Computed example of a mutant assay.
Amino acid sequence: MLSGRGEDHRNGQNRARSRRRPSAGRDLNAGISFDGVGIDALAAPLTLGIAAGLLGGKVVGVLVASFLAVHAGLADMPAFASWRHLLGVAFLCGIGFTMSLFIALLAFPGDELLQTESKLGILVGSLASALIGSAVILLGKSPISFRDY
Rank of each mutant, 00 (worst) to 15 (best):
R10A: 05
K58A: 04
V59I: 09
I137A: 02
S134D: 02
L74D: 11
S134M: 07
L48C: 09
F108M: 09
L114A: 10
L106H: 14
R17K: 15
D35A: 10
A16H: 14
L138W: 14
P78Q: 08
D76I: 00
D111T: 08
L74Q: 13
L74M: 13
A75R: 15
P78N: 11
I103E: 02
D27T: 07
M99A: 04
H85D: 11
L131N: 04
G53S: 06
K141C: 01
Q13E: 14
F102D: 03
F146H: 12
L131C: 07
A75L: 11
L105R: 15
K58P: 04
F91Y: 08
G133W: 00
R20Q: 10
A130C: 07
R17S: 06
Q13D: 13
R147W: 02
R147I: 06
F108L: 07
H85P: 03
S33L: 01
R21S: 05
G31D: 10
G25W: 04
W83G: 02
S129D: 01
I132R: 09
V59T: 14
I144D: 00
A16N: 12
P22R: 11
V59C: 02
N11L: 14
A69H: 13
Y149T: 06
G140M: 05
V60R: 06
L138T: 12
I137V: 13
H71R: 15
F146G: 00
A75H: 13
M99T: 10
S100L: 03
A16G: 03
